[in-house]
Amino acid sequence: MKFRFLLITLITLTSCYNIERNCKDYKTGTFYSEVTIDSMLYKSEFTRTTDLQVETYNGKIDSSQVRWINDCEMIFKTINPKSRAEHKDIHLKILTTTDSSYSFEYSYVGEKLKQKGIAYKK
């Protein structure tokens, strides 16, 4: 009897916890993002269409092709890379969404080290 009560309680509590992910709302638009790496905050602004993202960081403009894997994951490929690091594709996954922002994690394709950040609609 105790087991049945515990099981029902557990199912009830876990069913109430749904992470909101309305990723389609963030496929296109103008955003700014904040990423903290080693206690340093990095901010950038970007505009995304379904297949292109143009980002401004520290006064420099960078363009990437966007390939959507599914509604919440995409791969960025830098257009006209200038360094060896820019040749590597970046995988980004939207983790959660709100009405005006989304949290994400990203890494170079094939690497385990992931960074997290938040992007806000402008």
Rank of each mutant, 00 (worst) to 15 (best):
S107F: 04
D89H: 00
T96K: 11
Q65N: 14
V54W: 01
D38L: 12
Y102D: 04
S63R: 04
N58H: 11
G117M: 03
I94H: 00
V66W: 00
T12P: 09
T12L: 15
Y32K: 08
N80C: 10
I19H: 07
R21V: 14
C72W: 00
G59L: 09
C72P: 02
T9F: 15
F76N: 00
S44G: 09
I94F: 01
T36I: 15
E73T: 10
K2W: 04
E20S: 14
K122H: 14
T49S: 13
I118V: 15
T78Q: 08
P81W: 01
Y26W: 10
K27G: 08
F46W: 06
G59T: 07
L13A: 14
F31Y: 10
S83R: 03
S101N: 06
K122Q: 15
T78C: 08
R67I: 14
V35I: 12
T28W: 01
G117D: 03
E105H: 04
I75Y: 00
Y17V: 14
F31G: 04
E86S: 05
Y42R: 12
Y42P: 08
C16A: 13
I69Q: 05
K43V: 12
G117A: 07
F76Q: 02
T12D: 12
M40V: 15
Y32D: 06
I90W: 01
T98M: 07
V35A: 06
K82P: 01
Y26T: 06
R67L: 14
Y57N: 10
I37D: 08
D38K: 12
L92I: 13
I118W: 02
S64T: 06
I79K: 07
L6S: 10
L113K: 12
L95W: 01
S33H: 01
C23Y: 01
L113S: 12
Y102I: 04
N80G: 06
L41S: 14
K114C: 09
S44H: 05
F5T: 11
K93N: 12
D51K: 07
L113R: 09
K27L: 09
I8Q: 09
N22F: 04
S103Y: 04
T78A: 09
Q53N: 10
Q65I: 10
D62P: 00
Y120I: 13
N70S: 11
R4G: 08
Y17D: 14
C23H: 02
R67M: 14
N58A: 15
A119T: 01
F104W: 04
N22S: 09
K77A: 05
S100I: 13
L95H: 03
I8M: 11
L113G: 05
I11C: 12
E111S: 12
Q65D: 15
P81Q: 01
